[in-house]
Design a protein around this nucleic acid. Structure first.
Lengths: 344, 344
DNA sequence: GTGAAAGCGCTAACAC
DNA sequence: GTGTTAGCGCTTTCAC
């Protein structure tokens, strides 16, 4: 590789000092427009790009944000958060350094140490499912924002999906299609995600004077849980016409039982999931109408907050706590009930 | 945050020079065991950790590997590669800097520039589906390994799944269960992945004196493609008893048609997919037997190669090209054919 | 308006 | 064995 061109090469070529080059390129100081332009042109011709390592050492700021996540390899969720964070970071000249712990606190601590040695300026602390976290002590000294989790005892800003809104959106969609006997299937895993969706469902049903029916089984919230809870629901509410599922894998389980019993989605049974896992929702037949989770947006939001916090001595006063709205993704699993046998 | 402790703090506290501290911690030079030990203890007590930015500037080596991928957000594949790479990197004191282009060459070029400014020591150039790539010119100067793609015109080492082996493994499994009328469904998208699996299937069938049947439709290789090709297969080979599917989403499509026609998996129809996408394969009923792709292993391999190449003036002579074996993941979609109506 | 020079925290010749 | 010192490439203060 040709040796990288440095600031002094540019200075020599432009016939000015390194100071002038630095000022010309960073927009600092008072340079004549002519000099500035000249230097920029020369730098461009030489293909100069500042060495960020040297710059970081001098400025005591690396321009790197550490991204710590509990896992990255089972769903595409992490990818969506990273994508949002990366886009926002690129717009601001920041770079992301990813690290993941596979839910092992020891590994996590080591990874955080590596990032600290690397002089990262700030941290994104991301979870893949909405729960409660307390931050590792090591993060206390740097701007940190928590993604897809709440940090009740700490002072870090956080961003999560609006879970109650999800329950409301799904239930209202089913109501709007004319359904009255709508059940919600979920899991026994108290936490903001499960509880919020149940609450949104219950409230919306109550507002319409309808009786809520919630069925749960122990975690995990997968297709098998969907099958079990749906069968329980059918036994208890035989004339149900619609199901709001905690997530897409559970909805997949409902499709399976429906097929087995000769129930046709959406004519005999309307279904709404949550997650918008393309790999499931778009592959089912008919496509699954589902509520999308704002992973991309949460990633963006985190970097937007951090970039304002970096270099701000008052950063720790940022205590924003945001719930992001979740869009309904229409596919084909909701229709009007075939025969509305009257009020519930 | 308390000011970070530096090497000179350790030197003062230990009553030695910074050189001695540097040597004691890096294992360089000749120090008396006593001094070395003493310094290490003091450093530990002070919680000293070297500033890698300063070290990088001085050594002209950042310890960072740039990880460039075409996409990270639609399947968990990227996550698995990253995981493997990260584990291997952590073992070697390397850190990963991820960047992804969403298949946009302009974005990719910019991202690579950022990594270069950051003085990364080497690159992983990863694709999410096995194809052919030529490397961006910018990568020419640094050790680079290509993951899940081949680099026919370049000199970079690469690692890919053994696609022919996948076709063979799947076909042999079906043969071993007693099937003879086995079809392969795939897509019209020539490339190592599609072609290799077809070849492995054809060869294995030929070795057993059986007639191969391959059905394809245009991309994408999703459930819809699975439904179409399977219906075509049924029309052409009505007494088929087993299907080897190009990937798991296509297999999902086959389940759908099978359910519709009252065919029971695996009793009336055995199925094997490829991908081991948990989110599909483990959620189908019965679980889908599938051939797993070695994403984690490919990520590890890439870093292992790179770490040997970093700092080796002869690095460009590394032209390893590896095809990694792919494991059969047994779930429940393969059984013996119900009635073997004789030879094909 | 422009430039000289002092470091950022570390490593590695080299001297003792 | 241990210490002195000269940078790595940049930013920024301060002098001109």
């Amino acid at each position: 590789m040709a040796k990288r061109v440095g600031i002094s090469d540019v200075a020599t070529a432009a016939g000015v000092s390194v100071t002038t080059v630095s000022h010309a390129l960073s927009g600092q100081g008072n340079l004549s427009a002519k000099t500035r332009e000249h230097v920029q042109r020369v730098a461009g011709e030489l293909g100069y790009a500042p060495n960020r390592i040297a710059s970081a050492l001098r400025r005591q700021r690396s321009g790197i944000v550490g991204f710590v996540s509990d896992e990255i390899a089972t769903t595409p969720f992490a990818g969506r958060i990273v994508l949002g964070a990366q886009d926002a970071a690129a717009e601001r000249g920041l770079l992301l350094m990813l690290v993941n712990s596979n839910r092992d606190d020891r590994v996590e601590a080591q990874q955080i140490d590596s990032l600290l040695d690397q002089q990262v300026d700030a941290f994104v602390y991301a979870r893949m499912s909405h729960g409660l976290v307390s931050l590792p002590a090591k993060l206390a000294g740097l701007p940190t924002v928590v993604v897809d989790a709440e940090n009740p005892d700490g002072g870090a800003p956080w961003v999560v999906p609006d879970e109650v809104g999800i329950g409301r959106t799904a239930t209202e969609r089913l109501l709007a299609a004319g359904h009255r006997r709508i059940v919600h299937i979920s899991v026994d895993a108290p936490g903001p995600g499960v509880d919020g969706r149940i609450l949104g469902y219950r409230r919306t049903m109550a507002e319409h004077g309808l009786e809520p029916h919630v069925f749960t089984v122990p975690e995990p919230a997968d297709a098998s849980a969907g099958r079990e809870t749906f069968e329980a629901a059918l036994a208890a509410v035989p004339d149900l016409t619609a199901v709001f599922c905690f997530n897409d894998p559970m909805a997949m389980g409902v499709y399976q039982i429906a097929a087995e019993r000769g129930m046709c989605v959406p004519d005999d049974l309307s279904l709404i999931g949550v997650d918008n896992l393309e790999v499931i929702a778009a592959q089912l037949r008919p496509g699954l109408t589902t509520v999308g989770l704002p992973h991309y947006e949460m990633g963006r939001w985190a970097i937007e907050q951090l970039s304002a916090m970096i270099g701000d001595p008052e950063w720790s006063s940022n205590r924003s706590q945001v719930e992001l709205a979740c869009p309904l993704i229409e596919r084909g699993s909701v229709a009007s009930p075939r025969k509305d046998t009257g009020r519930a």
